[in-house]
Design a protein around this nucleic acid. Structure first.
Lengths: 147, 147
DNA sequence: GTAACTGCAAAATATTTGCATCCTT
DNA sequence: AAGGATGCAAATATTTTGCAGTTAC
């Protein structure tokens, strides 16, 4: 349960994000964004459909996730089992250009996926000719709760 | 164009792999395995359907990929754009337990995905409580041919 | 001969598109 | 008022399942 001040802070954050991305403020976008802000874990399309207070059309969820991606509000996480999960971008992400160079962790037991913002992506030395732009690291194993 | 000796070697390799995985030798499995052995790049389901000499039913391709996964013959590569690609495992992979701790590279221009077998996955230090079992690294950028 | 594999049909699921209506600005 | 966002219907695409016929061993 959130305290009123925290609640207001989060609502402001939601409005800020939508505003700086030049998106109009709608219930669907606010709800989905709230879900991301409230959740520690990355969310699958399915989670989003299931967890919003008001039910939004499946198509609206698709379109919202798509535009959030384009605007650099969220990013996808590539997981070993190829289920698609989405997580909030940090501030460095700009429109169409993501810099989520942090490590992702997927728990094999509970399936939760988290961004380990504080764990740096180590440098990778590539054979010559390859020009890296982005490095994704996904560690899987058991998370704090499950081990 | 392969020389006869190379051709025979590859055919032998195909039989070896199927045999040691205790799979019966069928045209579908041989064709799909041949595709992987001939290709430097990781393959999407779509590629496999399109490139086999003889057309196999879509369902057969699904089932073949699935059993190859189970047997540790191939592994999936998590890509930034969440398209699923498959690549041959190295010998260390056993049934149900993959050790593909090498780096994958996805070219943003041509879309080709390759395993950089020789590039080691760097050590990642996780917050306490997290127990890593597998580390996947996907680098995206431009490949040798495209840069 | 038997168990395993395949193809076909169909079900179930996931994703995209078009359009009329409603909402935000 | 105008442009953008949404919901609904429907088109596509993807993946799974059941079953009967075929093939490998």
């Amino acid at each position: 349960m959130l305290f009123p001040t925290n609640f207001i802070m989060m609502e402001n954050q939601i409005l800020n994000i939508l505003h700086r991305s030049q998106l109009s403020i709608t219930d669907g976008r606010k709800s989905i964004l709230r879900l991301f802000l409230e959740s520690d874990n990355a969310l699958a399309h399915h989670d989003i459909e299931a967890r919003t207070q008001v039910k939004f059309d499946r198509v609206t969820v698709y379109r919202t996730l798509q535009i959030f991606m384009e605007k650099g509000i969220i990013h996808t996480i590539p997981t070993a089992d190829n289920s698609i999960k989405y997580a909030l971008c940090r501030d460095e992400c700009e429109q169409g250009h993501h810099h989520d160079d942090h490590v992702h962790f997927v728990c094999k037991k509970c399936g939760s996926t988290v961004c380990l913002e504080d764990v740096h992506v180590p440098a990778v030395r590539l054979p010559k000719g390859f020009k890296p732009q982005q490095v994704e690291v996904v560690v899987s194993g058991t998370c704090k709760e499950c081990s």
